[in-house]
């Protein structure tokens, strides 16, 4: 269970460029929730994820994961509970290291990195088994450097790495946005498969409304640093892109302007 209370984040505080990116976010994520997050550009979606992961320090508020207040934890320490996949396929993996070395690092997430051998023989068996479910033939290329892989392959590998040690919550920040449509679909399928198989708790930011409705059991919409819509279960299942847009009008009470939102 992840409880976010009264989370506030301001950029360039005290300067003329001051932006209130998140204003008093309250969100309770139940165990097993798969939440899709939508909102126009600048709504605060990525900021929310970065604040959760610890990349940005927060101004005020609390983030509690399973009764542990992690609000002041540095990013590397939060990584013991949180794993993430970035929009940029290059960010989640280490290019010069081999596939098995990347997986070995992920397999030690949250554990000390001591002077034991980085990759051991029985690790390789595990990695091979795990890689097989990607259907990319990577299980035969354990020793290949990750820099040789395509963006889609790297993103699939990042997903696997993020779930190799089960996180309390998986953060996906538009992780298919930089991929071609066919690869994006494959990575999305894999995402759904991994989350369902391991009963993971996940937060997925997306710009694609159809995707946001198809995936997950809960949907939240951000606007101007606030959660303006939070639907789950049957209510979410019954929603269509049109009704979602309608909701947006209603809550905002203004003309729908952002053309990015219409790109479904």
């Amino acid at each position: 269970m992840i409880e976010i209370t009264d989370l506030v984040k301001t950029f360039h505080q005290g300067s003329i460029n001051e932006v209130l990116a998140l204003s008093a976010i309250d969100l309770q994520v139940r165990k097993g929730d798969f939440i899709t997050v939508i909102g126009s550009n600048g709504a605060g979606k990525s900021t929310l994820l970065n604040c959760l992961a610890g990349s940005y320090p927060i101004d005020s508020g609390h983030i509690v994961i399973d009764d542990q207040d992690v609000s002041r934890w540095p990013e590397y320490k939060r990584a013991t509970l949180i794993s993430r996949v970035f929009q940029d396929p290059l960010l989640g993996t280490c290019g010069p290291l081999s596939i098995e070395q990347n997986l070995a690092l992920a397999n030690r997430r949250g554990k000390p990195h001591g002077l034991k051998p980085g990759v051991r023989q029985n690790d390789r068996e595990l990695f091979k088994k795990q890689l097989t479910q990607l259907n990319l033939g990577l299980e035969e290329r354990l020793k290949d450097s990750v820099g040789l892989l395509s963006g889609g392959q790297r993103q699939a590998l990042t997903l696997l790495m993020a779930t190799l040690v089960q996180p309390k919550i998986l953060l996906l920040d538009e992780h298919t946005a930089a991929l071609d449509p066919k690869t994006a679909l494959q990575v999305l399928k894999l995402t759904r498969q991994l989350i369902t198989d391991q009963h993971l708790t996940a937060l997925m930011v997306t710009h694609n409304m159809r995707e946001a409705l198809q995936l997950g059991n809960r949907l939240i919409m951000l606007h101007g640093g606030r959660i303006i819509l939070d639907v789950s279960g049957e209510e979410k299942k019954a929603m269509t892109v049109e009704s979602l847009l309608e909701q947006f009008y209603k809550v905002r009470g203004e003309e729908f302007v952002s053309d990015r939102m219409l790109l479904v």
Binding site: A53, K77, L90, L91, C94, L97, R109, M161
Partner: peptide
Amino acid sequence: ANQQMITSQGV
């Protein structure tokens, strides 16, 4: 090579 990656792996 990639500080963001290794930080997200808890290092």
